[in-house]
Design a protein around this nucleic acid. Sequence first.
RNA 1: GCGAAAGUGGCGGAAUUGGCAGACGCGCUGGACUUAGGAUCCAGUAGGUUCACUCCUGUAGGGGUUCGAGUCCCCUCUUUCGCACCA
Length: 830
Amino acid sequence: MMDYPFQDIEKKWQKIWQERKIAKAKDFSDKPKYYVLSMFPYPSGVLHIGHASNYSIGDAITRLKMMEGYNVMQPMGYDSFGMPAENYAITHNSHPRITTEANIANMRKQFDGMGFFLDWDREVSTCRPDYYHWGQYIFKKMYEKGLVYRKKSYQNWCEQCNTVLANEQVEEGSCWRCGSEVIQKELEQWYFRITDYAEELLDFSKVIEWPERVITMQKNWIGKSEGATINFALEHSEHKIPIFTTRPDTIYGVTFMALPPEHPLVQQWLKEESGNSKLADFCKKVINEDKMLRSSAETVKEGVFTGRYCINPLNGDQVQIWVTNYVLMDYGTGAVMAVPAHDQRDFDFAKKYGIPMKIVIQNRDRSLKIDEMQEAYVEPGLMQNSAKFDDLDSETAKSEIISWIEKQGWGKRSITYRLRDWGISRQRYWGNPIPMIHCPNCGIVPVPDEDLPVFLPENVQVGKTTSNPLLSVPEWLNVKCPVCGGEAQRETDTMDTFVDSSWYFARYTDAHNLDQPFDPAKADYWLPVDQYIGGIEHACMHLLYARFFYKFMRDLGWIKGDEPFARLLTQGMVLKDGAKMSKSKGNTVDPQYIVDRFGADTLRVYLLFASPPEKDVEWNDEALMGAFRFLNRVYRLIEGNLDAIKKGLQFEAEVEKLSPALKELLYSSHHCTRKWREDCLTRMQYNTAIAAVMEHLNHVTAIKDTSALSNDELAVYAEACGIIPQLLYPFAPHIAEELWQMMGFEQLLHESGLPSYEEKYLVQESITYVIQVNGKIRGKLEVAPDTDHETLQSEALKVENVQRFLEGLEIKKVIVVPNKMVSIAAKANK
RNA sequence: GCGAAAGUGGCGGAAUUGGCAGACGCGCUGGACUUAGGAUCCAGUAGGUUCACUCCUGUAGGGGUUCGAGUCCCCUCUUUCGCACCA
């Protein structure tokens, strides 16, 4: 049998949709707006199966919302700056702009071949000056508001290549290109003060529907801790060392202080004591260790005593200062007051180096003895050895000790976040230049607005230089200082590509604005994004950065509202042979091949049917054929019964005149529509919506001979067939339009309205009750819908098999679950 | 290591609020048909047991709550994602 002519159909409808500009979203409309957005792709050159899957979901939502009567915008663009393009250029001796633009052109063709309703008039590509111009502008606004600063931090560095390496470019501690050892080098970097927004970023009350797990992950990522910052005076010095602790109740038990080797004081001591090779060697070693391993509980704790002491302000104790591998500079103040008796890591360390311990929190029966402790006591308890706080409950003491410390001026109550400020500097070429100028006289000066954008120079030979390529373009690098007019140099760092992707969704609302990032009125109309779709891997970084930018733009008055993404759908990956598809593994599937061979509709239906959107799907060639066969069956059904359908559409059915089979078909049409609406509109579970349509199709095709049907029956038959294109439209739009037109409807499906069902056709003539005895099914009962509980109970007890299992038992309880079951609990009668 | 999830037939999955486990599809088995097609149509398909009805077992493993648990609670195992310069 011939396959349905999917190629002709898909080409035909893609042309019609384009000509009628259906995907073009209108700014300001009488209809309510709906903004559907899938995370934009990195333009690798070809659409892969993951893209097809992701965008099929977005397109299904887009079409559903159009049927529902919304003014829908579904834009698309490219996250086109970044390392892969630069690396490709290095190895293939080309230029990132050339390869990137070629890739974009190719992907555009593939997008169109899938038949997505994308508003290409709003296309954004982050590597184009009309976009990155406004990224620089936003950077400047942040700088003006004091949210940008510079700070030294350690970066992966290859001495051989004289360059910073991304984490991905470090392979087991070595440079991926030359293989030499990667070290940590301190460099001056640009930072965004995202921690200023930490508290607000913890608040998710303004989003409408986000997966709970993403919210939890972000909250944990931000990691709020309440405690105190307390200053310990350095002995024989004016210097104070601030520490942060969440356990001020243990402060009388401090027996040493732990500093990370990166701590500024340690670095200062290293300079002062150039002869202390033991400390220097230790610091060098630890700084180059993997931070993940350092923070692991199982890593062997190591340290070096500095020979210095500080003073515990509360009791005047002299406290040894150690440099250790298990404390990180990134959290709190870096310095940790170590209480070995009540912190496991401090305990391990103190045991190893023979540092004294002191119990300051006793358990309830006061049985803790320092010589017998095998592990730290970390639970709350009663205060001990803590001067005037003795015998207090430790939880109460926490707050009282902080108040005492504040009163004495030794420190203050404080909150620390695990979240760190966002380092945005990249020493790379293919990114958005940071619009700053270094002037020997005036210091660091922003590029004036009228000189924006700072164009990324094109005549750069990537790969010819090892350090930042921008240093090798003197005509770009050397500028006049905008303040004093003297000789100055541009900043050569470019921005993290996450900066580009933190506001692109706002640019889509006004993609071609030459005077500002976007017109606030248009942004106000379209934002927030009603439905955002993307991978779970972005839970903590991209999604957090975008929320931060949104709140910042709100504070500038550019936009209203607090959250960029009202609803979030985190979709799963398409796997093959249990692993993520990748070129290196050789387990890729080319969506273009599938489209050419079986059509975009088949691919879309397969991807949406394979699993609910948020789960991973295992690619399966044979299951793909199942989707293809399904569409063929639909096509054959409608094409083969066209006359009967067209005739039936002219009649209204009288239910009483229907045969039992047609009554069932009527029920199926309405039942299926109800299920479909619930799955599509409420649950966003398209796999079961498609399953419902398949089930309905099975019911329709069960009727073989339409010539025997009466006019009433033909009406039911025609309706049953007629709803199929509508139900299929969000998933397989081309074939749906074709069949819809074939049946004689003139409007296109996006304006056909949502299919609806009538409750009156869903009333069941009888209900089957399941009868359980002690939790096991022992019988069934067919009754009228409104049978009362007493009748149900007595009828249930009459069922033969039920009686068999009740023999010799005494009935303790009978539970009736309306419309579902009768459950009998019985016990042996002694 | 830390944080977050997931685990159901041969496979993808369904079971929406604690109420008939396995919808729908793939695969497989048997049959029909034939223009021999990546066809189509019909029947069957969790495992065990039985001629059959029935019954027993079964949702990673172990324990618990309940008349009733894939679903709730505790423990264990495995897999996946993220961990701040991949995007």
